[in-house]
Nucleic acid binder design. Structure first.
Length: 480
RNA sequence: GGCGCCGUGCCCAAGUGGUAAGGGAGGGGCCUGCAAAGCCUUUAUGCAGCGGUUCGAUUCCGCUCGGCGCCUCCA
């Protein structure tokens, strides 16, 4: 087995990956909140996780990938301690929160599929793990890590000796309420204490009984409860967007390690953001945010004429720890369609790639026909992937080798669906009357009557066919 | 105030203490009546700026400028 090196946020270094159990990997990744569609920024992170999983599997690991589905517990805005986002969206769409969650969970699965992202092995829903969360909170309570306020049950971060180790927080220098949209609960003992259970929420639609009153779970606890349920108290890799480092993941570690006394996740990997640039107004940064609306989703790409795989290919060309800028230009006022240069480029490049592979295979051209050459190239590309998922380098190498065989081998990781895309356009037989025009044009060309030849080309085009001259004679194909 | 990230050709983007992958786009060429495709070739003495360390820095260190993320429920 080849060595794999991964950048671990805990140590801020690339480390050799050694799983807990040889040959097996337990992977947990923070999943979607399902009160709205996922946007392509969210999906960039899931795509990174897909690439990680595929790379590990390519190396022969047996990977168990768990991703939570958050279908409860988010507030309307960060300053609102009352309603959750599920309820508000439910009212907006005239659906009960449960149906709403299923609707967007289905949409999430569909979008994942459209981007060629393999679904995780387990997609546990928060609402189906309330028991586990309550049990975990009880454990924390028994171990003396909690206290109650009228708002609910809190985790006391001062009881955790190494709180903030992931983010390397210096707690004294953290500004409480640095964000104006977050209100501060004055009953908290320490600014960074976080809620484990919201009690006293009897009017809430999604609510459950608990030792701390009727209410619903705090946001962080679901990830601890579900990851430990499916992967054990200690597991190998935990992933997420890098915005989760200071708060969400930090709190996951605090509560999990407080409850078990063991290391939670051993390797932490975080994906950088996709940033949206506003083309007309470069000074205005568009924030890819679900709660603020107006974001680009997979359907937006489709409606704009892009194959979602082109977006995947674009993402493959940037390292997961680098921010990726997308200069998106909306084409219509209601924000349904748009375009981006980098996506145009990616789409064009991908189309040519498919054609090259298909043509090379048809003509039996293989640059790495010797097995020894192939094996050496394969190791080289694999080493790029195993070096902290350097997919851009791997793609560069694949382009350089230009070997259909190598492309196909690594499509198991890249997921460009070469199998179904690298096909020459079907040779559709044109009707006899079209061929008559082609014959006539051939005659005209022989007679060097190019005016007539061009007129016939136009006539053929008007009937929906494109004629191309080749050394073997004219060929016809359907106009696209 | 704190934590952290980034600045590589027209665009996107790898990379390295020893002299800049790859993808697009553009230029030139082959082919071609035209068109399209294909193929070949070409484009950074340079990696924000200024210092320092070094035989040698784009790569390490410092400062400056510029951009960005997070600091309690945004991937």
């Amino acid at each position: 087995m080849q060595d794999i090196f991964l950048y671990n946020t805990l140590t801020r270094t690339k480390e050799k990956f050694l799983p807990l159990v040889p040959g097996k990997v337990g992977l947990y990744t923070c999943g979607p909140t399902v009160y709205n569609f996922a946007h392509i920024g969210n999906l960039r992170t899931f795509l990174f996780e897909d690439l990680l999983t595929r790379t590990l599997r390519f190396n022969g690991y047996d990977v168990q990938w768990v991703m939570n589905v958050t279908d409860v517990g988010h507030m309307t805005s960060d300053g609102d301690a009352g309603e959750d986002k599920m309820s508000v969206a439910a009212q907006r769409e005239n659906l009960d929160p449960w149906s709403l969650a299923r609707k967007y969970e289905d949409a999430f699965r569909f979008d994942m599929q459209r981007l060629g992202i393999h679904l995780p092995d387990v997609l546990p829903r928060a609402t189906e793990h309330i028991e586990e969360m309550i049990r975990l909170n009880k454990t924390l309570e028994e171990r003396g890590f909690t206290y109650e306020t009228p708002e609910g049950l809190y985790f006391d971060t001062s009881k955790s000796s190494d709180y903030g180790k992931l983010a390397r927080l210096r707690l004294d220098d953290q500004l409480q309420g640095a964000r104006a949209d977050v209100n501060v609960d004055s009953e908290k003992r320490n600014p960074q204490d976080f809620i484990l259970w919201f009690g006293n929420k009897p009017t809430h639609i999604m609510k459950w009984d608990s030792p701390w009153g009727v209410g619903y779970p705090g946001w962080h606890i679901e990830c601890s409860a579900m990851s430990m349920k499916y992967l054990g108290d200690t597991f190998d890799i935990h992933c997420g967007g890098n915005d989760h480092i200071p708060v969400h993941n930090t709190n996951e570690i605090a509560q999990s390690e407080a409850a078990t006394g063991k290391t939670f996740a051993r390797y932490w990997m975080h994906a950088a953001f996709l940033n949206l640039k506003n083309k007309e107004n470069p000074n205005t940064k568009l924030k890819m945010s679900k709660s603020k609306g107006g974001f680009i989703q997979v359907q937006t790409l489709v409606d704009s004429g892009y194959d979602p795989i082109a977006y995947r290919y674009l993402c493959l060309q940037a390292h997961y720890r680098s921010e990726l800028e997308l200069a998106w230009e909306w084409l219509d006022a209601d924000g349904k369609t748009g375009r981006a240069d980098s996506l145009d480029t990616a789409a064009a490049s991908l189309k040519r790639l498919y054609e090259r592979i298909a043509r090379a295979e048809k003509d039996n051209e293989e640059s790495l026909s010797e097995n020894s050459q192939f094996d050496a190239a394969r190791i080289e590309v694999l080493n790029a992937l195993n070096d902290d998922l350097n997919v851009p380098k791997a793609v560069g190498l694949l382009h350089t080798y230009a070997s259909p065989r190598l492309w196909r081998a690594f499509d198991a990781v890249l997921g460009l669906d070469i199998e179904n895309h690298a096909v020459l356009p079907a040779e559709e037989e044109a009707p006899a009357e079209i061929w008559k025009l082609v014959e006539a044009r051939l005659e005209a060309r022989k007679a060097r009557d190019f005016a007539r030849s061009d007129a016939l080309r136009d006539e053929i085009a008007a009937l929906g066919w494109e004629v191309a001259d080749s050394p073997q004679g004219p060929t016809l194909k359907r106009k696209q």
